[in-house]
Design a protein around this nucleic acid. Structure first.
Lengths: 254, 254
DNA sequence: TCCGGCGTTGCGTATTCTGCAACGTCCGTT
DNA sequence: AACGGACGTTGCAGAATACGCAACGCCGGA
């Protein structure tokens, strides 16, 4: 809606991949150098970007401060962090914290396994809604109407043989997830990874976040990953309790 | 230079302190609601902000991704991280990594002490140039001319009795820091905190970053903090070596 | 010394942004 | 149940603002 702002934001997003020259950026955006320069200078004034020794633009220091504030404002991250760390250590696997927001699910935190194999994932990264355990758990708690809306709007890209590729199947799966209280991603996104996820509920009883464990097949079989479920569920329940959730009252959302 | 962009950036900076309503933001910026709304919508499209349940605007998920990239692009942070963690553990104190950039010094990393006392500092936060050990180390390595420029431009706010409040004194202090290879902040910023800092050099021999230890008086006396210097200097030298710095060639910058 | 690449500047045009005023909606109140 | 207020939202017309052009200047390589 605001052209110049939209362009500036695209500049920032572009710089995510690495530093750029003025001409590079102008080329990528398809706008005149002059325009890009003016935007960059404004961004520079507020330290959203900086230019190095000579004429390469980088993401600037203000982003650190903003992201830090943003994370600090997500209380649930702080509440969950020690529990997630512990879960990651005890299982030796990668643990994610995810939240749903405005039709999207993204990682709010990540705790690496000690393993040499690293997950390709980053805090802030969006995750597909139709083929991840994290998203299933989060979508499963939406009010029915919204759940349908979201399911209808998804881009059902097929990533693997197991990927769910239509709204009807997804809704069935979500119902099951809601019923059983956890979700599985059985190589639905990456052929070589299994995930399990469980909901974190807040005082209102709604699902406020989800915790997942992601395991490459080379480390554990599907069955072995399912063996991690008790640990996962315990962790998720503990965090829920920390958030003020009480099991007794917390039902009736099915 | 670009009005709408500048306003949008100020919105983001404003949201740093916490979520706001549309009217709040319009009031703070002194602009019409309509204008703010249009900017917010553009920001929302790119997920730089999001609105919660009803009508409060928060910093959005994209910032996480950007900050994460920005940090990842600062190689020195990754290189230094394990050493800093170790230093923090072995001393039991708070350790910071700082860099100089475009006339400013800010924290690139922070490793908390296990202590119950927490430092008020955050990654991305700017630090005063005239009364911190970190800044002294970084400024001390600037080319003489630029050092003078920077010293002239500083706002010499007096924070404590010990604060240096004029360019001449600062330049003398910087010369000493350059000579001795470390800097001390003897309650110059906060009356109850002592800091020591040491330079990290890269392959070019220039100071690329600085490492500091900050200690509240209730934990250690000034003399005891100085006892931490060997540890600090060793850590800084190790990181320098990791950055490709070799002591033999690395001189002639005094 | 010349050439090419790249960042930078001044300027006229018109596109884009702005603020006003009015509307709709959601809440809490009477 | 009707009213009032707070707040977000929309359409619009004027004008400030952002845009792209063209030319300049700087630096590095040939």
């Amino acid at each position: 809606m605001s052209q110049s702002l939209a362009r500036a934001l695209r500049i920032l997003v572009g710089l995510e991949k690495g530093p750029r020259s003025l001409d590079d950026l102008a080329g990528e955006l398809g706008v005149h150098k002059t325009t890009v320069l003016r935007l960059l200078r404004t961004l520079e004034d507020e330290r959203f970007v900086y230019r190095d020794g000579l004429h390469r633009f980088h993401l600037g220091a203000r982003l650190f401060a903003l992201a830090d504030s943003a994370l600090a404002q997500r209380e649930i991250r702080a509440i969950a962090a020690p529990r997630l760390e512990r879960l990651s250590r005890s299982t030796g696997q990668t643990v994610h914290l995810g939240v749903y927001e405005g039709g999207e699910v993204f990682y709010l935190d990540k705790h690496d396994s000690g393993q040499s194999i690293q997950m390709y994932s980053r805090v802030g990264l969006r995750v597909p809604l139709h083929c991840t355990a994290l998203a299933k758990v989060l979508l499963a708690d939406l009010p029915e109407e919204r759940r349908r809306e979201v399911a209808r709007a998804i881009d059902y890209t097929r990533f693997t043989e197991n990927t769910i590729t239509d709204p009807a199947s997804l809704l069935v799966e979500l119902a099951r997830v809601a019923r059983q209280g956890y979700a599985v991603d059985d190589a639905e996104h990456e052929t070589f990874i299994t995930c399990v996820a469980a909901p974190v509920r807040d005082a209102s009883g709604r699902v406020a976040a989800a915790v997942s464990i992601s395991v490459p097949h080379v480390l554990l079989s599907r069955a072995e990953v399912l063996d991690l479920l008790p640990d996962l569920l315990t962790t998720a329940r503990t965090i829920s309790a920390d958030c003020g959730y009480t099991e007794i009252e917390g039902n009736g959302h099915g």
